[in-house]
């Protein structure tokens, strides 16, 4: 469409060939038009049932994985405080041997914890292979009642507490 037919006499280049420019711009335009209905990123989180019926007692052979998030944004796996690398490693080790239906992780967070931390913990659990991640609440030993320090004191006797830097 834009190929030049008549060159004016004498001029070395009297007109720029705009055809490639139009091609590129049109393609960019189409790309942006398609991208515009943007993508949403979504993380699914399971919620506990609302009925008052108590949940079936957990099978003692299958250890539940419960991540607690404390008010100071630190976290614990099954009430043992962890930093992020150890949380990742432990979750991975725990989830590895399980069949897909049992790769469930529960998250229990203190109300004062940042939402970002909670989402991050869900994200880490999914990254380490959790199939379903849900919110749950522990009555007695949850982060709503305890702080990470109290937990360390409670859990201290059996395992030597890892030095926290």
């Amino acid at each position: 469409m834009g190929a030049k037919v008549g060159g004016s006499s004498g001029g070395s280049m009297d007109e720029i060939n705009v055809t490639p420019l139009i091609d590129v711009v049109l393609v960019l335009l189409i790309i942006f038009m398609i991208i515009t209905p943007m993508t949403v990123q979504k993380l699914p989180a399971e919620l506990p049932p609302i009925e008052d019926t108590p949940p079936p007692p957990p099978d003692p052979n299958k250890k539940q994985l419960m991540i607690s998030v404390f008010a100071d944004n630190s976290y614990a796996l099954n009430l043992v405080p962890k930093d992020e690398p150890t949380l990742r490693a432990d979750l991975k080790a725990q989830l590895k041997g399980r069949v897909i239906d049992e790769r469930n992780v529960f998250v229990d967070a203190n109300g004062e914890a940042r939402y970002e931390t909670v989402v991050h913990v869900i994200d880490v659990a999914r990254e380490m292979g959790a199939k379903r991640v849900g919110f749950a609440e522990l009555k007695e030993t949850g982060p709503e009642k305890l702080t990470a320090d109290e937990l360390i004191r409670l859990a201290a006797p059996p395992a030597p507490v890892a030095p926290i830097p």
Partner: peptide
């Protein structure tokens, strides 16, 4: 929004 690696991406068509 908080960042997440494992989020599922979906076209937001309203």
């Amino acid at each position: 929004l908080p960042p997440a690696q494992t989020a599922e991406s979906e076209k937001d068509m309203g």
